[in-house]
Structures are given as structure tokens and as C-alpha cells.
């Protein structure tokens, strides 16, 4: 099966000779087992349970930080495994990084106003 994909890639690559034929269908060769997905899902459900539990304990301002950290971990799990960032080309990873950095900048600069008013 993966051999078939590879041959398809090769022929396309030769046919249009665009030089990026090797990237073609890059994420497609990777077969992730059903089991892996289930484990990730279990992790996500467990993290949801943890975040609900932590919210019940009175930790003051730590509650928000803990909730956001857990949400970030969950997002990473979804992104890395379900959205296949793990198998994506470097360029997509760079794109995501650029987007997140710019989004973070919006926050920092806006709060440079709000928190010093």
C-alpha cells in the first residue's frame, strides 16, 4: 500500500518536474495505529477530568493558570496527533509558530496598555 503511494509520488514528481514532488503527499505515508488515537483520546478525557477537579479546589489565581496550562496541553495533543502536525513538513510547523507568535504579540502589547493604566 505505502509502496503504491510512493510510486504514485514518483511518477507525479517526474511528470511535472516541479522539484517538490518528493513533498507531495508527505503526510500520507504515515499510518498511525487506531490504538494510538485511542490512547490520545484517553489522555484528553483524563485531562478534562483533572481540569474540572482542579477548578473545584480553591487555588486563587492559580486556578486560571492551571486551567490554561491544561488546555494548552490538550491543544498540543490534538494538534500533534489528531491534526498530524507530528508528520507535517517543517514549513507548516514554521507557519504555526509564526501565527502563534503574532497572536501572542497582540496579547502582550494590548496588556502593556491594560495592566499599566
Amino acid at each position: 500500500m505505502s509502496e503504491q503511494t510512493q510510486t504514485a509520488e514518483l511518477t507525479t514528481g517526474q511528470a511535472h518536474a516541479s522539484g517538490h514532488g518528493d513533498e507531495h503527499a508527505a503526510g500520507h505515508g504515515h499510518m498511525v495505529s487506531y490504538g494510538t488515537y485511542f490512547i490520545v483520546w484517553l489522555g484528553l478525557v483524563a485531562l478534562t477530568a483533572i481540569t474540572v477537579t482542579i477548578a473545584g479546589i480553591h487555588l486563587g489565581s492559580l486556578t486560571l493558570i492551571a486551567a490554561m496550562l491544561i488546555a494548552a496541553v490538550k491543544t498540543t495533543l490534538v494538534g500533534y496527533h489528531f491534526m498530524h502536525i507530528k508528520y507535517d513538513n517543517v514549513i507548516i510547523k514554521v507557519f504555526i509558530l509564526v501565527c502563534l507568535v503574532i497572536f501572542l504579540t497582540f496579547w502582550i502589547l494590548t496588556f502593556s496598555d491594560l495592566s499599566f493604566r
Binding site: A8, T11, A15, H16, A17, H20, H24, D88, I92
Partner: peptide, 27 residues
């Protein structure tokens, strides 16, 4: 893919299916 092969190199850019480009656009 075989279409691309049959029609030769000239029209590849149009017919060519670019999964990576499609994924990039989605992102």
C-alpha cells in the same frame, strides 16, 4: 496521476493535484 502522465508535461501545473498545497491552504 495517470492523467498527468498521459497528457505530458505541458499542462501539469493545471491538472496536477497538490495535496501539500491544499493542506497549506487549510492551515
Amino acid at each position: 496521476h495517470s492523467e498527468v502522465l498521459n497528457q505530458g508535461e505541458t499542462h501539469a501545473a493545471h491538472v496536477h493535484r497538490d495535496d501539500e498545497g491544499s493542506k497549506m491552504a487549510m492551515w
